[in-house]
């Protein structure tokens, strides 16, 4: 059975294995805490987090029908704002909170994964390596043709994220060194949207969370270093960040249980299954 599945992507396999294991007793223990409980948890923010949140929410809701968990996107900015205003229980960010944000809203952060951010292109793009300087020039609009970096003779189509994006902030700070991003870049609203935009445009370049890289998009090596989770963990690949869940003040009740679940062994497995390094 599992061998037949092996041609599917690793992530899918992991998901299938996870849900098969779900019925087993090994993992039931961690979900026990939710059994018989009722209430709701609203989650919003960081888009890199969504696969993890969705899977965890599904398992919890299958354990107790009286628990309702909603997962919304929006980007890290939304996460901070909504949790700060008390509109959601957990606001996710793909970047650390600023001191200002912590002070203003009294937020508490829970990091649960390490992730990298990588410049990515269409899989048919022949460019296999880019230097940091090249990436900076491309995003600043100084390099406008793929030919200049060893690709085919075609205009480069820039894709970027909106200002609420934590992925954008990390990419901009750590790789672009706070340089300009050309104003004519197409703006997309999430990691997932960036991925599908890049997957359908041969001359595109954008950036996504490493967890989102699969066979539909390609990440050229950066200064010769492949942007993989392994290299991110060892520090060889420098554009890394943590993924956080944030709450307004100390979490309690269901929210606390949910965060604990994400940080526990079960959550770690889900996190790894989604392509991130659990902390």
């Amino acid at each position: 059975m599992k061998f037949e599945l092996s041609r599917l992507t690793g992530r899918l396999l992991a998901a299938v294995v996870c849900s098969t294991l779900l019925t087993g007793s090994a993992l039931a223990g961690e979900l026990d805490v939710f059994a018989g409980k009722k209430g709701k948890i609203d989650i919003a923010g960081g888009t890199a987090h969504i696969p993890v949140m969705k899977e965890a929410a599904k398992r919890v809701m299958q354990t107790s029908r009286e628990i309702r968990i909603s997962v919304a996107a929006g980007g890290s900015g939304v996460g901070v704002q909504k949790v700060g205003e008390g509109l959601v229980d957990i606001g996710n960010t793909g970047r650390p909170l600023s001191d200002e944000e912590v002070a203003k809203y009294g937020l508490k952060s829970f990091a649960f994964a390490i992730d990298g951010v990588a410049a990515t292109v269409h899989p048919k793009n022949p460019v296999g390596n880019l230097t940091a300087a090249q990436v900076q020039d491309i995003f600043a609009g100084k390099i406008g043709n793929w030919k200049a970096v060893g690709g085919r003779d075609a205009a480069i189509h820039l894709y970027t994220r909106d200002e609420a994006s934590g992925t954008r902030e990390v990419f901009w700070e750590k790789l672009l060194k706070k340089g300009t991003i050309a104003a004519n870049a197409n703006v997309v609203a999430s990691n997932g949207a960036m991925k599908s935009a890049l997957a359908s445009d041969q001359d595109a370049i954008g950036y996504v969370s490493i967890g989102h890289i699969d066979e539909t998009i390609k990440a050229p090596t950066l200064d010769g270093i492949a942007p993989t989770q392994d290299n991110a963990r060892t520090g060889k690949y420098p554009i890394v960040r943590k993924l956080y869940m944030n709450t307004k003040g100390e979490p309690h009740g269901l929210t606390a249980d949910f965060i604990k679940y994400i940080l526990g062994p079960d959550g770690k497995q889900i996190t790894a299954g989604a392509g991130y390094l659990p902390l």
């Binding site: 939304v78 200002e163 004519n184 703006v187």
Partner: peptide, 19 residues
């Protein structure tokens, strides 16, 4: 060329910090 309208600007930026 791409463009951004007032409406899509609102939809994109509604995210940002409320102050």
């Amino acid at each position: 060329d791409p463009l951004r309208t007032l409406t899509s600007h609102i939809a994109l930026v509604v995210a940002t910090d409320s102050q």
